[in-house]
Amino acid sequence: MNKPKIALYWCASCGGCEEAQVDLAEKILDLVNLVDIVFWPVAMDYKLEDVEKLPDGSITASLINGGIRLSEHEYVVKLLRKKSKLVVAYGACSAWGGVPGLANLYSREEILKYVYHEAPTVENPQKIQPQLKIKAEEGATLELPEVFPRLLPLDLVVDVDYYIPGCPPTPDVTWKAIETLLSGNLPAKGSVLGALDKSLCYDCPLNETKPEKVLIKDIKRPHEVIADPSKCLLTQGLMCLGPVTRGGCGALCIKAAMPCTGCFGPLNEVMDYGGKAASYFASIIDYSDEEEIKKVLGKILDPMGIFYRYSLPASRLRGKITVMRR
């Protein structure tokens, strides 16, 4: 019998998702026994032409990580959509834009100008900037993919069947999700695979030390305190986003005495993770006077980076409106 076919692809991402897949360690061998991997640029030598030659719908599932930022990403994910029965957004960037999605606060022109001309580490006296097409001296035409005006999560470009959360998804979550995908017993379309439907606090070993009602007088950034690893980090003034973040990672950061930054994303009913997270966090500031409130919240130097760290392109407004409008 033919084994199910799986494709793995990367778009605008950091490579951490591939790391996580490789971190399946010896389970990778189980995986290779169960499926044929037909495309995996980081580890295998199949080319895009090989995918183009496959019959439509012949790949059981394509796991795609990274946000869509280049015309090349768009081409490949549309191709994989056509060739696959299931398309899965793997990791935070693919699901909601991720850290690279914070670039939606700036226009493409601002980004290119900074990266190629202004960044302190850049020396570019000839003012070279990549072009879409150039004629090389030898006569050949060279092309580069286009940078899109903004980054989009996968589901704004192609139809997505499932989501696997995390930055990156842990090997455990990845394996659980793959088992579900191969089981034939598929959950409702749009479901999040491999994680919990409850918040991280539910799964957190420090939850029993968290009082019924948390109120804080001051916000502490991680470098400002040595956290007591046996006490709910939120009660110590650290900005733990556990209460509004999907559980399933096994409280990895908390176990290292670091507050959760929200990489498993929103729970099912939330429509804007950043809005929800900001709402929850502001409401526990223990002052009623506007100036005091402002002062404490002022310790959050970069609210967009904190609350939308993984999800700006999936937010209601998708990014800075002057960037979004065009």
Partner: peptide, 19 residues
């Protein structure tokens, strides 16, 4: 009072959204 806290933070974020 909760609204005051929430909207105080939201105002900063709206500004960053360009509103």
């Amino acid at each position: 009072i909760k609204t005051l806290r929430r909207m105080t933070l939201l105002k900063r974020m709206l500004e960053e959204f360009g509103i």
